[in-house]
Design a protein around this nucleic acid. Sequence first.
DNA 1: GTCTATAGAACGATAGAC
DNA 2: GTCTATCGTTCTATAGAC
Lengths: 219, 219
Amino acid sequence: MLFAERGYEAASLRAITAAAGANLASINYHFGSKEALLRAVMARRLVPLNLRRLEMLGRFEAEYDPAPVPVENILRALLEPISSAARSQEGSWQRFRLLVGRMYSEPTPRILAVFWGELSEIAGRFQAAIRRACPHLPENEFYWRVHFTVGAMAHTLSAGTLLEMLSRGKCDPSDLAEGVERLIAFAAAGFRAPATEAPGGAGGRPAESGRTGPQGADS
Amino acid sequence: MLFAERGYEAASLRAITAAAGANLASINYHFGSKEALLRAVMARRLVPLNLRRLEMLGRFEAEYDPAPVPVENILRALLEPISSAARSQEGSWQRFRLLVGRMYSEPTPRILAVFWGELSEIAGRFQAAIRRACPHLPENEFYWRVHFTVGAMAHTLSAGTLLEMLSRGKCDPSDLAEGVERLIAFAAAGFRAPATEAPGGAGGRPAESGRTGPQGADS
DNA sequence: GTCTATAGAACGATAGAC
DNA sequence: GTCTATCGTTCTATAGAC
């Protein structure tokens, strides 16, 4: 899938049809447009993935009911189906996850909306579950931490090259199972951290120490 | 800057020159190519930013010497110069940070290399500092956590629309100062979390509970 | 040095033959 | 229904007038 390898913008319909052995007109005939093709690709993969996520979360909630599910297990329900899919369908998911990871920072609003359409239900469902596990956080800070976790997840899906460069080969970004296990531990600790003071209010510094005051002038 | 608003691929030289009131040929005359223009844009912003980061880290290291700098302060040296710049140069940095955040998951290797060229020195320097603050982590897991932090940072820089949708307006993604403060607390807790067991080894589950075994078949 | 004009190729989409 | 051929547009890059 060239959307994944090159990004949506850089993947031309010509290159896509050539790689698939099809002809240029077939995409517009079967899907209607380049954007509709993307929508179809996303739905084909994400719908079954999201079903497995919801099912897994549901099982956890039944198990712990009426107590909140620990945040580790909520994250596991969110992330494990991805690494399972990547394990069982090596080539195809190893490419698709690049695309998914990149969609989170998609600049074009129309394209981002395609992605959000497949994501919003899952987002609401998992967000509510994590909220129950983290009653110690003000609503505002809770959302930020969800945001950070999503960012770490997206980055893990699509920025493997950077991990290889950063770790000088010590980490294998294609091993999603390892990444997911690490991420669960990392993000769960992040969610459990005590709330910071309101940043509008005086000096909510979590660590002591040095003043900073740089003011920019590089433009 | 249209690179930021539309992404590198979607921003055409025509649109860029039109928005700047310049003519189409001027970019190739002054910079040589579209890629060289990106390189120039990145360098102009990131070089002074990275100087401020290194200076801030250096001050922390002098302050704590010979003890390791707490991870909160290392993160602060990495992140605070960004939010300072965004605060003092509202429009221009609010756009540029979109571009930077997106560069982390840039699909085109040549373009990613442009970014990494401006980043590698900072990466090595800050990674070494955090390593000293986190001696409890195996090397492998340490790199993964750096990776997650970078992902959360990139996401915070460029995925503001998602935060707005996720929080239904409760968070303001343009308030980088708040995001940075939250992120420091979140990531520092993530770094401090105890190491997980090797995921190759048996069942390093941080929480008890239910088996999972989904195996994919959605292709 | 800075512009207009345009080359040469690739783009998404479609009309119309079969 | 699936193809070829091509439309009209846009792309990056450059040649050459001023």
